[in-house]
Simulated assay, not measured.
Amino acid sequence: MRITNNPNHNFPLSQTEMSKSSIVQKDTQNPNIIQDKYTPSQNNIEKATYGKPNTKVDEKTVEKLKQESERTYHHLKELVKQLLERQGLTFQDIENMDATVEIDEETRVEALKMISDGGPLSPEAVSDRIVEFAKAISGGDKEKYETLKDAII
């Protein structure tokens, strides 16, 4: 390839820019002609296109949260079951029943512990689990932040 100097255009390249991409030599027979020889760069060049981040769902955290949720749900269900049994009722009995179920002191205290600060159904504990779950399923992909935030809200 031959490149001739055009006096109307001046595109100066620094020595660093020229050495990265090519070796420039002047033609010995005609000093106005510059020969350019392509030499591939030895530097590791980053991709110019966007690559999807390598994100993976944190299955371990999701499983831990699922088990924790199942334990809490089972505990709450058992609490209601015992309450009903003390009154001679079952879940099937109350399905279509219009009567009121009386809550005894023992059940009230236990339910209060579950929803109080530090309890598994306290607002803080529930919101922490929701956020932890969202982080786990995002795989650390920060682009999913707004989508997950909207889903939580």
Rank of each mutant, 00 (worst) to 15 (best):
E85P: 02
G119I: 05
K60N: 10
M1V: 07
S69W: 08
K135N: 12
R71E: 09
M97T: 13
I45Q: 15
Q25A: 05
Y145G: 12
D98A: 13
F11C: 09
D27H: 00
N32R: 04
A111W: 10
K149T: 03
K113T: 04
T100Q: 15
E132N: 08
I33F: 00
N6A: 11
I130F: 12
A134V: 02
Q92N: 14
K60L: 02
S14C: 04
R86D: 14
S14N: 05
V109E: 14
Q35I: 05
Y38M: 06
L13Q: 07
Q87S: 11
I94M: 05
D98N: 14
G139A: 03
A134P: 00
M114R: 02
A136P: 01
N5A: 06
T28K: 14
P123A: 13
E132H: 06
N54T: 13
S41T: 15
T39A: 08
D36V: 08
E102S: 13
K64T: 05
K26R: 12
D117G: 10
T4Y: 11
N32G: 08
T61E: 03
Q25K: 02
Q25N: 09
K52H: 13
H9E: 01
N44S: 11
K26A: 08
A48I: 10
L13S: 01
L148G: 04
T147A: 15
L89K: 10
V57W: 00
I45V: 12
S116G: 15
A136T: 01
H74L: 09
H9G: 00
K81H: 13
P12W: 01
T55P: 00
L13D: 03
Y50V: 10
P7Q: 03
A48T: 14
S19A: 14
N32P: 02
Q29N: 10
K26D: 12
N54P: 04
F11I: 11
N6C: 02
E95Y: 12
Q87A: 09
K64G: 01
N8F: 10
D93T: 06
D141E: 06
F11G: 04
P40W: 04
G51F: 14
P123S: 15
I34L: 00
K52V: 06
E106R: 12
